[in-house]
Amino acid sequence: MELIADIFLVAGALGAGFYCYILSRRLSRFTDLETGVGGAVAVLSVQVDDLTRALEAAQATAGASGDSLENLTDRAESVAKRLELMVASMHDLPPAAQPAPEVKSPLGPIFRRHDSAGASQ
Rank of each mutant, 00 (worst) to 15 (best):
P106K: 05
A42G: 06
S24F: 07
L85W: 02
A64L: 15
T61I: 01
E84I: 04
S89K: 13
S65A: 13
D67A: 10
E34K: 15
V79K: 07
G63T: 10
L33C: 00
L69I: 09
F30V: 06
D74K: 09
L83S: 08
R75V: 04
E77C: 02
T61K: 13
L72F: 01
L23Q: 12
P94W: 05
P95T: 11
M90S: 10
V87I: 12
V103R: 11
S89G: 09
E70V: 05
S105M: 07
S24N: 12
L55R: 03
S78V: 04
V79D: 12
A57E: 14
L93N: 08
S78D: 06
S24E: 08
T61P: 00
D50M: 06
K81C: 00
E102P: 11
D32V: 06
A96L: 15
S24K: 09
Q98H: 05
R26N: 13
V48P: 00
R75F: 01
D74P: 00
A62Q: 15
V46A: 13
S78E: 10
E34F: 02
V43H: 08
T61M: 05
V79F: 03
V48Q: 07
S78T: 04
S45N: 15
K104Y: 10
P94N: 11
G63R: 09
N71R: 15
E77K: 11
S105A: 12
L83T: 08
A80Y: 01
S45C: 05
T73V: 09
A97F: 02
S105P: 02
N71E: 15
L72P: 00
G38P: 01
M90Q: 06
V103G: 08
G66S: 14
R25P: 00
R75H: 02
A80T: 07
R26F: 02
L93E: 05
L55F: 02
Q59H: 01
V103N: 11
L44W: 02
D49T: 15
T31G: 02
S68L: 11
L44N: 14
L23N: 08
V48C: 05
A62Y: 01
S105V: 04
A100Q: 12
L55V: 03
D50K: 09
V79P: 00
A60C: 00
A60Y: 00
S28V: 06
D92L: 14
A40V: 12
E70R: 06
V48W: 01
A64M: 13
L85F: 03
R29T: 04
L72K: 06
K104M: 05
G66R: 09
D74E: 12
L55T: 05
P101Q: 07
K81P: 00
